[in-house]
Structures are given as structure tokens and as C-alpha cells.
Write a protein that binds this DNA or RNA. Structure first.
Lengths: 340, 340
DNA sequence: GTTAGCACTCTATCTGGTTGAGTGCTAACA
DNA sequence: TGTTAGCACTCAACCAGATAGAGTGCTAAC
């Protein structure tokens, strides 16, 4: 069936209204909204068509219509205009970052918080991942007999500490040499090349083969995907009638707390600027009546992690995208401040 | 009024029953429970006295009685016996820690998770604090022109990284000297003495006064209280009728998300083994119908942080304390494994 | 193609009645 | 004096029936 101009007008009006009010919209309401330009009966006919096309749904026979996932998808893909935030709101966002932001944990907490505060949905952010980064420094520090600390600094300014075993009789100067040689070899390179560098140095230096193995082992372990996800705004759930049903709120919170689901979603978006996943488009069952919007953030030009919000499919997508755009800017700026 | 043996028996029966079932207990129920040893009327008289003493409350005229905060306090202080967990349950707790626990964040997440899983309340843990620790190593690593990384290792095995400014023309060997001299001076000492050490070295070495200042500044900032608190088990709220009221659930979640409240509670318990705060004993208004149980955890003998659960005043205190005892043991063991 | 009219559907809300658990009080009892 | 039986009363929870309101689909007329 053709999606005529009028059908589209009706559909978009329903989407807008439903996003704003959360109640199903009937033909009379629409007719009045346009000052009677079309009669309720006409609108009913069109609505009926739209329902057949899978764009509208009826919660029950005598309720108005609500948009389907497909309608939101159409709306988001083709008719969403994302307004710029007012200067004042942009300012508000910045103000959330005005406190000590020395550590990535602080930045993550602030981001999740401002996301939830500005959107009234649940905000979340994934910790920066260590794949895809380049090395700036590798330093090995003897700590006690038989134990050393490796400090890895990436060119993005991310620091990673890793303890590992060394032979008890290891000479401190050897560790010093290792540090220098490794840093020379690896500077500007990806971590993927770490094992090659280790092999090479094993031969060249002719000492401490087992130290390189231990170091390689700990680096491998520590640069495995970082599964840390921070959430904020759990209480926002209750601002939306969708979750006022206790059982639904409970499953939703359980999904958040299990973290796996969102870790997967957030880590899969690494190459896309913005992803919107609506209702049944979500793989995970307990999210099939929610929408998830995610975006990546960068440190020093590299996309290293992502953040986003999750809320009902009846989400104010325009608002969410505006806010996320602004937060993305603030975030990239703050994180690149610590660039090395 | 005297708290006779029989009154006490009735009170404790009500506390136990209410904790188990969550419904008010009436005189008939109690009378039947004891096979009619006392008639309902007698029990009613006693209950009336207990109510006058502030130990019982009535939700409404024709409901049974429920314990007051004061009753829980009495119960917890004088009549609580904390059963040991079964070996199987102890084993279950350990199993939560079987995965990669390389970083403190992992340990925190696992602890919050097991707390909530084993108790059905909300679990939480505060990150280790850096006051009260002793220094094992301080290392300064040049990163780029004008920028260096200080790595602080405590004798408990906590590592802290801090970037700071150095003069662009700073010689790497000077940084090396600084590292060695600082480590020599500070090893085994508390961080409080760091500024003294800096002053001393400033004079002795005769170079880099401004570097010491910058270093001191960043250390001060980085060792400020760590406000990171991890929560788990939000969905457990709904397992308890106390929070099935949406408004109460919302305020509760809001309190959790603001973090401040719990940061304060968790950081104030640093010297006490276990703290139990019941209902109106809680300073914060939104917790006045909840209870908070916290305990400290240690790394290498020092009490560095705390963890706990929060739930309704009608909390299974015995269960919570059993679980926390076991988790405490597991936690101390795991964290001291990384001791230097 | 559009509209008016009409019978119908479904939810939400209000009402009143019933049930069950529990209380406080009084008077009788040991 | 402490304990108990009896009784009138209270309150929340539940159920059933009535009503109002919003909205629909269908048909026939414009």
C-alpha cells in the first residue's frame, strides 16, 4: 500500500503525540487537532490502513492507536530533526564535568549522571577499551623480590597497571633495560604487536625469557575487554508509565544489573557513530519493549568506548540525540585533555 | 515498665515472624503458635503494654502488630544469633570470585553482586581509600616533553597513577633520582609524611623544586577520598513488599543513585567492624524506613574500605550478618593476595 | 473519496456489600 | 491481682454490578 502524504501526516502526528503524552491517540482527537480538516471517520479509515501496514497498533479494541516499532524506525530514519540544545542547556551539561575529573572513573560517573539527568532515561557508559590503542610507554618497576609492576601508557593517555612474577634474583637494571627496549620498539604501535616485540627482545637481550613470557601473559590478560559499565538514573524508570508495572520494572533492573546485555550492546557499536535500537530490534528479550541509543566516544581520535541511554520505545529520540551530541563533544574534549 | 520474660517472648516471636513473613501478627496467631499456652486476650494485654513501651506498632486499628525500630535494635543488640553458613553456601560465595580478579574494580563488582545475590537486598561496596596506607614505591616516569606520570604503589598493593607537569627541559635522570630518593625516604611511611619528604629532598637534591611541588599537588589530589561506590541488586527491591509502592521504590533508587548518602555512610564506618543502622537511626530522610548494615574490609591488615547491604528495616539481620562475615573473609583473602 | 450515524467494545471508576482478621473493653473467674 | 471469655467494633481486601467515556468498524448517504 502507498504511504500517501495524508497517511504520513497522521502517522507522524500520532508518533509525536504519543511520545509527548504516552496515551493512545484516537481519530476524534486528531480531527480536532487539525480543526476538523478531516473528519474522524476519514482518519479512522487511514488509521486502519496504517495498522494493516504494520505502522500502528491498538492496545485494545476501544483504545486509540499507538505507533509500532516500525513506525518509530521510520520516524527516526527519515523524519527526525535533532534540534541544537540551547546555550544554557549546553552550559548545564558542561557544569556536570566541572569537578575533579582526574580519573576515568570520575568521567564515567559524571557522564552516566548527566545523561540520565538531561534525558529522564537511564544513562550508561562503557569503560574505554584497550584494543585499538597505540603504546606510548611501557615501564617495568621492581616492587618486591619476585614481583614487578608493569605500567602501560597509551598515546591516548590511558594508564594500565599490571603486577606479574619475576625471578627472585632478577637484577633491577635488567628490568630497566627491558623497559627502555620495549618502549623503543612499541612506541606508536598497536598492542597486537606486543608479542612480536617480546620475541624479538628475548633473542636480542638474551636474558629473562621467562620474564617476557610473564609480562606478555599479564598484558594479554589486562587488555582483554574491559567489562565495566556504569549506570545512572535507575529512578527515572518510574517517570514513565511503561515501567510502572512492578514486574516490568523488575525485569528491566535485572537486565541492567546483569550488565552482560549492555556490555554486549555497547561494545558492538564501536565503529558506528550512533546506533538506535528500537523495541524488537533488540536481541535481548527483556529489552524488546525498550529502546537503546548508543554513541561512541573518542580519546585522541580513536574510538575507545561508548555511552548511551535506555528507555521506553516511546522515547523522545530527538531530545536524546541532542543531548548525546552535546555530551559527546564535552566528553571528547575532556578525555583528550589528558592526551599524551 | 518492666520487660517481663513473657513480654520478651512475645516481642521476639513477633520480630521473628514479621521478618519471615512481612505481615503483621495478631494475638490469635501467637496464641495458636504456642498451642494456646496463653489466651489471645492475655497476649493482647501484653502487646498493648509493648506498644506503650514503643516496641510495637499498629499499621492500623484492625491489623496485627509489627516491631518498631526500637524493637529491631533490641533484637539485634541482645538476641541475635548469627548462624554460620553451610559449607555449600560458603563455597557458593567463593565461586563468585573465581573469575579474573586482577583489578580492584572486578573485586568490587563481584562483591556487590554476591552480596545482593546471597541476601536478596541491595549490595554495595566503597572503593579502597588511600589515607591510612603506607608507601612501598614511588616512581616517576617521563611521558612526553613537559609531562610525567607518577606511579604510587602502597604496601597493600594498591597502585595509583597520576599525571603531572614537569619543566620541558627536565632531564630523565633527575626523575630517576627523584624516584629513588622518594622511595627510599617514604617506604613503609604513611602518605601524610609525603610533603615533609618532598621538602627535605628539595633541599638535598637542590634541583627541581617546582617538580616536587607539582608532584605533591597531584598526590594530594589523587589521594583525596575515593568516592566510588558500586551497587548491585536493584531489582531485589521488588522482592520486598515494602518497596512495591512505586513512589517508595523511586525515592530509594534516587538515594542510591545520588551516591553521596552511601558514600558518607560507608566512609564513616572505617573503624568499626560492623555497623547496623535501623530505620530512623539513619540520618538521611529517605532511608528512615530502611536499614543499612556495613562492615569494613582490609588489605594487608589495614582497614581501607567498607561494604554492606541496604534493605527494609524488616531485614533478615542474622542472614545478612552471616553472609557478610563470609564475604569479609573471602574479600580479605583475595585482596591480601595482591599484597606487596 | 468523504462523511454522518449507529451499534458495539473495552477500560476505568465508583458503589455497596461481604468476609476475615484483629482490636479494646468489660465482666467473670482462679 | 492476673487471666480469660465474650462481644461490639474497625478496617482492609475483595467482589460484583453499574456507569461513563473514549474509541472503533460498518453501512449508507453525500
Amino acid at each position: 500500500m502507498e504511504l500517501s502524504e495524508r497517511k504520513l501526516k497522521i502517522l507522524l502526528a500520532i508518533v509525536d503525540d504519543y511520545i509527548a503524552t504516552g496515551t493512545p491517540i484516537g481519530s476524534r482527537t486528531l480531527s480536532r487537532m487539525w480543526g476538523g480538516a478531516y473528519s474522524p471517520a476519514t482518519i479512522r479509515n487511514e488509521m486502519s490502513d496504517l495498522e494493516e501496514m504494520g505502522l500502528l497498533q491498538q492496545p485494545h479494541t476501544s483504545a486509540g492507536r499507538i505507533p509500532s516499532d516500525l513506525a518509530y524506525r521510520l520516524y527516526v530514519d527519515r523524519f527526525l530533526n535533532v534540534p541544537r540544545l540551547t546555550d544554557q542547556e549546553a552550559q548545564t551539561i558542561r557544569s556536570y564535568y566541572r569537578f575533579r575529573m582526574g580519573e576515568i572513573e570520575d568521567v564515567m560517573a559524571a557522564t552516566a549522571h548527566v545523561l540520565s539527568q538531561m534525558t529522564d532515561y537511564v544513562g550508561m557508559i562503557l569503560a574505554p577499551q584497550l584494543d585499538n590503542v597505540t603504546v606510548s610507554q611501557i615501564r617495568v618497576i621492581p616492587v618486591t623480590r619476585g614481583r614487578a609492576l608493569a605500567v602501560l601508557v597509551t598515546s591516548e593517555g590511558i594508564v594500565k597497571d599490571m603486577f606479574f612474577q619475576i625471578p627472585p634474583n632478577m637484577d633491577d637494571r635488567h628490568l630497566e633495560m627491558m623497559s627502555n627496549a620495549l618502549t623503543d620498539l612499541m612506541r606508536g604501535k598497536s598492542l597486537d604487536e606486543f608479542s612480536v616485540a617480546c620475541e624479538k627482545l628475548k633473542e636480542e637481550l638474551g636474558v629473562g625469557a621467562e620474564v617476557f613470557d610473564a609480562l606478555l601473559g599479564t598484558v594479554r590478560k589486562s587488555t582483554a575487554p574491559v567489562r565495566s559499565v556504569v549506570f545512572d538514573g535507575h529512578q527515572n524508570l518510574f517517570k514513565h508509565p511503561e515501567y510502572s508495572n512492578v514486574e516490568r520494572a523488575r525485569t528491566f533492573l535485572a537486565t541492567i544489573d546483569s550488565r552482560d546485555v549492555f556490555y554486549n550492546m555497547l561494545s558492538q557499536t564501536n565503529n558506528m557513530e550512533i546506533t538506535i535500537s528500537i523495541g524488537r530490534e533488540n536481541e535481548h528479550e527483556s529489552l524488546q519493549d525498550s529502546s537503546v541509543v548508543t554513541a561512541t566516544y573518542r580519546i585522541g581520535g580513536h574510538s575507545v568506548g561508548s555511552f548511551g541511554v535506555v528507555g521506553p520505545t516511546r522515547m523522545d529520540y530527538a531530545r536524546v540525540l541532542s543531548v548525546m551530541e552535546q555530551i559527546s563533544a564535552a566528553l571528547n574534549e575532556i578525555l583528550s585533555g589528558s592526551e599524551v
